[in-house]
């Protein structure tokens, strides 16, 4: 039996490189200024998975991603870097899921891939920074979790030894398998795309994407069936709809406030008490400090 590594990866808006353009003047998110990217720490997780695969006799790396149809890009990117296959979890019924509902859906998808030995994911996604889906998925799968992994010290068919990066130090831990590992940004960077894999898989598409294509892929897909990326819906996962989306999410967003004030020019202040006080009052009032 092959050693199966499942990698959870997410497509996210790039919240890091847009600075002041991220929000529009009306306080809504400026999507145009936020390209969709591979969540950075999920790339660290993919690299760790590919590294483990290279250490084992017979291993495979399978990508799971949840999102809208365009998130299939994550699967192609992973395959170009050496992943063996990928599944896109996509359904309108998932919309509005918080971390609990997401981990429920993801855990059902992982179970569909049983028997698996390892589940890897980034520590957190840059759009939410919660770092919750990893541990919550581990709980739903009833397997141990190792968070903030930086390095694989040793691995075999039954156990893994991981160096963890903690806020004030490191820890080396050993766990039995199966286990879920979340990977820290200090782990090795992901390898680049492999040109041969890119050529081989550049026409990989989901069914939804094929419907959008003007070109007829039928013949190509008959010859090269591995190009088909499978999509899993709520029905495929046999999921309880009540535990998904808004109804399955115990957290609700009550209010959103924009903290970026649109400043065209710098506001000049003097060192007079009243200037300093009004500035401090604003910083506290807008939750920037305090």
């Amino acid at each position: 039996m092959s050693f199966r590594i499942v990698v959870l990866a997410k497509q996210v808006p790039d919240t890091r490189n847009v600075g002041k353009d991220a929000m529009k003047a009306d306080g809504t998110v400026n999507r145009a200024a936020l390209p969709a990217i591979y969540n950075p720490e999920d790339l660290n997780a993919l690299e760790m998975a590919l590294h483990i695969k290279s250490k084992m006799k017979d291993a495979e790396v399978i990508i799971l991603t949840m999102g809208p149809p365009r998130a299939a890009e994550i699967i192609r990117e992973s395959i170009y870097r050496g992943a063996d296959a990928g599944y896109l979890i996509t359904d309108r019924k998932f919309a509005g899921s918080d971390t609990l509902a997401t981990s429920y859906a993801v855990s059902l998808a992982v179970k569909k891939l049983a028997p698996f030995h390892l589940v890897l994911s980034g520590r957190q996604a840059i759009d939410g920074d919660t770092a919750q889906v990893g541990p919550q998925t581990a709980e739903k799968l009833n397997i141990p979790q190792i968070t903030y992994a930086e390095e694989v010290v040793a691995v075999d068919e039954t156990q893994i030894t991981i160096k963890r990066r903690l806020e004030r130090g490191i820890e080396v831990v050993k766990s039995s398998l199966p286990a879920l590992i979340t990977v820290h940004s200090s782990a090795s960077e992901c390898r680049p795309r492999n040109a041969k894999l890119l050529m081989k898989h550049k026409h990989a598409r989901t069914v939804t994407e094929l419907q959008e294509e003007t070109r007829d892929y039928t013949e190509l897909y008959n010859k090269r069936p591995y190009l088909q990326i499978e999509e899993w819906t709520v029905a495929d996962l046999n999921a309880d709809v009540e535990m998904l989306g808004l109804s399955g999410s115990p957290t609700k967003v009550k209010k959103i406030e924009n903290v970026v004030l649109q400043q065209k020019e710098t506001i000049l202040l003097t060192e007079a008490d009243k200037d300093i006080e009004s500035l401090m009052k604003e910083l506290i009032g807008t939750h920037i400090i305090g």
Partner: peptide
Amino acid sequence: LYQIRPAFGGNIIATIINPDT
């Protein structure tokens, strides 16, 4: 409990509640 946190790379402040759980 109003749970107030920055989100979206710190560009917004969200107030989160858990009404039922």
